[in-house]
Design a protein around this nucleic acid. Sequence first.
DNA 1: AGCGTATAGTTTGGCATCAAACTAAATGCC
DNA 2: GGCATTTAGTTTGATGCCAAACTATACGCT
Lengths: 164, 164
Amino acid sequence: MHGTNGTGGRLRGRNGLAAAGPINFGPLAYWVGFNLRMAQEAAFQAFSRRSQEIGESPGRFATLTLIARNPGISQTELSQANGRDKSSLTPVVEDLVRRGLIERKRMDSDRRTYRLNLTPAGKKVLTTMTRCARRHERNLDHLIGARDRKRFIQILKKIAAGIE
Amino acid sequence: MHGTNGTGGRLRGRNGLAAAGPINFGPLAYWVGFNLRMAQEAAFQAFSRRSQEIGESPGRFATLTLIARNPGISQTELSQANGRDKSSLTPVVEDLVRRGLIERKRMDSDRRTYRLNLTPAGKKVLTTMTRCARRHERNLDHLIGARDRKRFIQILKKIAAGIE
DNA sequence: AGCGTATAGTTTGGCATCAAACTAAATGCC
DNA sequence: GGCATTTAGTTTGATGCCAAACTATACGCT
């Protein structure tokens, strides 16, 4: 190496720190995996902040929606639809029951499985959360642009479904 | 409710379980946040499996790449570039130093900060990991299609950068 | 009926992450 | 020089997640 600052190719301020300087991302810059992670994290953080405003946890939203749309769904079905392990659902369901947002009944024909349903209180909370989520979505839509939105979602679905 | 199966609008098998049946995703089906999460998780799982084949952890990959491309980078800069809290980096850096993949030197001018650099061993491991990641990327590229790839990444970057 | 296997949900253990409190060093102001 | 403020990194505590072990029901075969 024959440069003058000994940082191997990156210009920095006199004390070796890039002044909020340009980071070289190398191949990460154009790789899908990395950008997917960064985008997801950013969107999640934003939604998280919004959820806090209404005093709810972001993870509860998809759960309540799926129960609302699929009354009587079992925990295993729910965990699969939601892309989480069934064991992760146990404390969530416990919490939602405790707070009176969902109701949980043993099935008669198969006494291992539960059926989950929203209570009236749960429906009310979901309505509030949905309004909040819609604001978040509008924000994202704005960034993406109406033209590309549909195609964008299609690609996301393909990735979710089609990876081996 | 006056239906016959008591599941409130969802057809199920005789014991109340949808036979790997169609889940109603409601608004989640076309919302960006949810699909972003599902895609990211799927891609991550796939990369995770691949990483295991070469005996590495998926999280190490971006870290090593960023150090390689920005020699002498500090931990705080690194954590920001990588989209993680600086405290998450402490155990990672410890591990990489312990295994002799990176080297860590106090700066002379500011003795609070470290400079991180790859060792020759680290460079070698990164080469292997990069090959592995390229296979993963090819897989994703195939799903996305060459035509939409560039636009897709642009949108992901916009989301990562532009959310408030 | 009885036994082996499969399934629904829970428990446990470990990991990655963040946020807030903390330590040590640097900077600025008087 | 001395003291308040900022900054780099670590520690601690909490959360959410997964995978594997576990419990209890159910199913299937003989």
